[in-house]
Computed example of a mutant assay.
Amino acid sequence: MRLQVVLLDALGTLLELEPPAPHLCAELAARGTVISEAEAAAALRAEIAYYRAHHDKAVDGAALAKLRDRCTAVLAGALPEHARDTPDLRGALLASLRFRPYPEVPEVLGALRAAGLRLVVVSNWDVSLHEALARTGLTPLLDGAISSAEAGAAKPAPAIFARALALAGDIAPGAAVHVGDDAALDVAGACAAGIAPVLVLRDGAVSPDGIPTLRDLRALPELLTTYPQGR
Rank of each mutant, 00 (worst) to 15 (best):
T33P: 07
I35M: 08
S36E: 14
S36F: 11
E39M: 10
A43K: 06
L44T: 05
L44F: 06
L44C: 05
L44P: 04
R45Y: 00
R45G: 12
A46S: 13
A46M: 05
A46K: 05
A46W: 01
E47D: 09
E47W: 07
E47T: 08
I48D: 07
I48A: 09
Y50E: 00
Y51H: 11
R52S: 14
H54S: 06
H55R: 12
D56M: 03
A58P: 02
A58L: 08
V59E: 14
D60F: 11
D60G: 12
A63M: 07
A63K: 01
L64Y: 07
A65K: 09
K66A: 15
K66Q: 15
L67T: 03
R68D: 14
D69W: 14
R70P: 00
C71I: 00
V74I: 15
G77W: 13
A78E: 04
A78P: 06
L79G: 02
L79D: 03
P80A: 08
P80V: 06
D85M: 08
D88Y: 11
L89Y: 04
R90V: 00
G91I: 02
G91P: 07
A92H: 08
L93G: 00
L93E: 02
L94S: 10
L94I: 13
L94P: 00
S96W: 04
R98G: 02
P103T: 14
P106I: 12
E107C: 07
E107S: 14
V108F: 11
V108L: 11
L109E: 01
L109S: 03
L109A: 07
L109V: 07
G110M: 08
G110K: 06
L112A: 10
R113F: 14
A114T: 14
A114D: 15
A114Y: 09
A115C: 09
G116N: 11
G116A: 14
V120T: 10
V122S: 11
V122C: 12
S123P: 00
N124F: 13
V127H: 08
L129M: 03
L129W: 01
E131V: 13
A132V: 13
A132R: 09
L133E: 06
R135G: 04
T136M: 01
G137Q: 07
L138N: 00
L138D: 01
T139E: 13
P140I: 13
L141Y: 10
G144D: 08
G144P: 04
A145T: 07
A145V: 11
I146M: 08
I146D: 05
S148F: 09
S148C: 12
A149R: 02
A149K: 02
A149T: 03
A151S: 14
G152V: 15
